[in-house]
């Protein structure tokens, strides 16, 4: 928000850099070498569905687009906050394909003027002891952060910080820790 925006009381949309999503492939290699975490093949995109027919039609189009290729269909679900999650499944060895799907959802919403509705995208990983981990991409910031849930709505902060150190060179990690908000029960975790 610049000075003029404050004076005029208007919000400016953030200019996102979606290509950063592709850095996930490199980060996954580093993550496996450094911490033994491997991709689960699950990934999801989270957005706030706008009211009205235009968005509903767009959502339908996106799902058809993703279902056009062979393999499992995308699953849509709505969480308790009213946000929609589109879950994509791929072979765990094919992270690039998964990231391409996530990118397609983000890019389609953005191209149709619904960029403001996008919250985040995430890719799931499993640790050597079965720990759950997600790398979450914040659309509005263009940054990533690790989220490691434990049973009982607790977070493994030590693991998250360890992961940040591991992938810091490959991904733009969100520097403001207060923006690492929890996504409990997100599809694809």
């Amino acid at each position: 928000m610049g000075f003029l925006d404050v004076i005029l009381g208007r919000s400016k949309p953030v200019k996102p850099d979606l290509d950063r999503l592709f850095a996930l492939s490199t980060a996954a290699v580093t993550l496996e070498a450094a911490a033994g975490f491997t991709p689960t093949g699950l990934g999801s995109v989270c957005f706030r569905a706008a009211e009205g027919g235009a968005f509903a039609q767009l959502e339908k189009d996106i799902r058809e687009l993703l279902d056009a290729d062979a393999g499992p269909k995308v699953e849509a679900s709505t969480d308790s906050y009213g946000y929609t999650w589109l879950l994509a499944r791929h072979d765990p060895n094919e992270l690039a394909g998964l990231v391409t799907d996530l990118h397609a959802v983000n890019a389609t919403l953005e191209a149709n003027g619904f960029g403001p509705s996008l919250l985040c995208s995430l890719v799931g990983f499993r640790g050597p002891q079965g720990q759950r981990l997600a790398l979450v991409y914040l659309y509005k910031r263009g940054t990533f952060y690790p989220f490691a849930p434990q049973p009982g709505e607790k977070r493994d902060n030590a693991l998250e910080l360890q992961i940040r150190a591991a992938v810091g060179a490959d991904l733009p990690v969100e520097a403001d820790l207060s923006r690492w908000f929890p996504v409990w029960g997100a599809p694809g975790l």
Partner: peptide
């Protein structure tokens, strides 16, 4: 989530 959507602290 709203702050994430808005990209604000």
């Amino acid at each position: 989530r709203l702050c994430g959507l808005a990209g604000i602290a």
